Amino acid sequence: MATVPGLLKGLETTVACVIFAFISSPHLYEHQPALGWCVVAYAICFLLAAVVLMLNLGKCENRLPIPFHIFQLGLTLLSVLLYASALVLWSLYQFDEKVGGQPPRSSNVSCSHEPIYSMCAWDQRLAVTILTAINLLIYVTDLVFLALNFVKD
């Protein structure tokens, strides 16, 4: 866990947990199947990172039928692809009014009646978008680090 890939996996799962906190209200994604796909992508990536962490912590890396670094590289590549699709779909279906997205925050009625210390649904949508982009960057960093180590070995 004290290695760079271990720290990145820990960070990936932490950011995913924060995303789950923001999407705990189904009204943010239940109106569009594409948004449901984003939630599934977040869950799959979280589970994949958790599997890698558990295998690492349990010292079970050598029990896989393929080398652990190839396994980890494949799961990270899959996660990058899932997060990239989630970033595009979440942003598009949450903020583009042509496909059913919400109007800008300034014209969103639900945000004008919220107290200052509360987050309206638009704020939650924006937070998930930003966190998705951050986690995608973390996964890409992880992928590059793993690929460079793979080439080096």
Score class of each variant (00 low, 15 high):
130 I>V: 15
118 S>F: 14
147 A>Y: 10
96 D>E: 06
144 V>K: 00
150 F>N: 01
32 Q>F: 08
89 L>P: 02
112 S>I: 09
20 F>P: 00
112 S>Y: 05
21 A>C: 10
53 L>Y: 07
85 S>G: 15
106 S>R: 07
128 V>K: 01
79 S>H: 06
94 Q>R: 11
101 G>S: 00
17 C>L: 13
63 R>W: 10
80 V>P: 03
14 T>A: 14
20 F>L: 05
63 R>P: 03
135 N>P: 06
24 S>V: 03
66 I>D: 01
10 G>W: 01
19 I>Q: 13
9 K>T: 04
65 P>K: 05
33 P>I: 14
126 L>I: 06
123 D>W: 08
24 S>Q: 08
40 V>L: 10
89 L>D: 00
30 E>M: 12
116 I>Q: 10
31 H>C: 12
47 L>M: 11
85 S>C: 12
125 R>Q: 15
108 N>G: 03
147 A>N: 04
103 P>R: 10
153 D>N: 14
23 I>V: 12
144 V>C: 02
38 C>V: 15
76 T>F: 12
136 L>W: 06
115 P>T: 04
14 T>K: 04
91 S>A: 10
67 P>N: 08
133 A>P: 15
35 L>I: 07
25 S>G: 00
2 A>K: 10
116 I>S: 09
87 L>N: 06
125 R>Y: 14
50 A>G: 13
117 Y>N: 15
131 L>W: 00
89 L>V: 05
136 L>Y: 03
99 V>Y: 12
131 L>P: 05
149 N>E: 09
75 L>F: 06
91 S>T: 15
46 F>K: 07
104 P>G: 00
145 F>G: 00
128 V>M: 09
41 A>T: 04
54 M>N: 12
2 A>N: 11
61 E>M: 07
6 G>Y: 05
64 L>R: 04
15 V>L: 09
113 H>R: 06
22 F>M: 08
141 T>E: 06
86 A>W: 09
43 A>P: 08
114 E>F: 13
114 E>M: 15
119 M>V: 06
136 L>A: 06
111 C>R: 03
48 L>M: 13
6 G>E: 02
65 P>V: 13
128 V>Y: 08
66 I>A: 14
132 T>S: 04
80 V>F: 12
50 A>N: 06
133 A>D: 01
97 E>T: 14
98 K>D: 10
41 A>L: 13
137 L>Y: 02
152 K>I: 14
36 G>M: 13
26 P>M: 02
40 V>M: 12
60 C>Y: 14
98 K>M: 05
35 L>R: 03
81 L>T: 02
47 L>A: 11
42 Y>M: 07
23 I>R: 03
88 V>C: 07
124 Q>L: 14
46 F>R: 06
50 A>S: 13
65 P>Y: 15
74 G>I: 11
46 F>C: 14
38 C>I: 02
60 C>H: 08
50 A>K: 04
16 A>K: 01
91 S>L: 03
49 A>C: 08
105 R>S: 13
26 P>V: 10
138 I>D: 03
8 L>I: 01
23 I>H: 00
74 G>F: 12
60 C>V: 09
27 H>M: 11
38 C>T: 13
5 P>F: 00
17 C>S: 11
123 D>V: 03
84 A>K: 07
15 V>S: 02
